[in-house]
Simulated scan of single mutants.
Amino acid sequence: MTEFVIQPAPQASVAVAGSQARFPIRRVFCVGRNYAAHAREMGKDPDREPPFFFTKPADAVVAAEGTVPHPPLTENLHHEIELVVAIGKGGTNVSPAQALDLVWGYAVGVDMTRRDLQDVAKKMSRPWDWSKAFDASGPCGPLHAASSIGHPSKGAIWLKVNGETRQEGDLTELIWPVADVIAYISEAVALEPGDLIFTGTPAGVGALNPGDVVSGGVEGIGEITFTIGKR
């Protein structure tokens, strides 16, 4: 049995709908600018610039319920509602035709972003880690097994703040569908069971303040609701 010089951190995991079992998280990949309207609102040209990828630590994923803490170092915390894909089988150089065979299930998640820190990082050509990979930056609802719900390729995706609709879109608007995203990632790294993929957000991202109630969902997968905690 392996001995460690300090106590290992608990295994990061996400709930599974209808089960007491949990899905262990290995890594978290996030797709940037994967909805054309969102790419445009961020000042980019989706026809000229393909999506790119960034990551979050596994333990940045927290339950999208109750209170999600407001992070320090920001005056401009943003919401980005997303379809989340859970990988159940590993693979490298996977073709789009085979990619969905790797999927264990799907969930609704939010990519929380310290937008002011991200803007500074962009201007200074620095990494985005401080703006994307902070504690509790990936609220996520329970996973639903693909064996039960299939592989969604269409359906509404939305987010509301205090009952007011902020983001609306449809999975058909993904520039790169789930299968293409999986195939592309597998060319760069070996996907492994436990990897999560946040697939991008539609237009309408905006600021969140302490006390705001965030609700959202993806048609056919589920809905989430949580409150932003104190600064």
Rank of each mutant, 00 (worst) to 15 (best):
A190C: 07
G43Q: 03
D111K: 12
E223I: 05
E223P: 05
E164K: 14
V214G: 04
G66H: 00
K230L: 12
E80N: 13
F23C: 03
T172R: 15
A36V: 04
D111N: 12
A133W: 09
F52N: 03
G217L: 07
K122D: 09
A58F: 14
H70E: 01
F53M: 09
H70D: 01
A21G: 06
K230N: 12
A145K: 11
E65W: 04
I228H: 02
D135K: 12
S186R: 00
K123H: 04
F4K: 01
P46F: 04
G163W: 03
V108G: 09
A121Y: 12
H151W: 10
R166Q: 12
N209C: 07
T225P: 02
R22M: 07
N76K: 13
G229T: 02
H78V: 08
A21S: 14
F23L: 08
S215F: 08
V214Y: 04
R114E: 05
R115C: 11
T172G: 10
R26V: 01
L100W: 07
P152N: 07
V214C: 04
G43F: 00
G138E: 03
P10K: 09
E164I: 15
G105C: 07
H78R: 08
A97S: 11
P210S: 08
I149L: 02
S147C: 04
L83P: 07
Y184Q: 13
L143D: 08
E75Y: 07
K89S: 14
P72K: 13
W130G: 02
V85T: 07
V181P: 06
G90I: 11
P142H: 10
G200Q: 12
H78T: 06
K160E: 15
S125M: 13
R166S: 01
G200S: 13
I149G: 00
V68T: 08
N162V: 03
E41Q: 11
F226P: 05
A15T: 06
F52A: 03
I221T: 03
I228K: 02
A97E: 15
T113I: 13
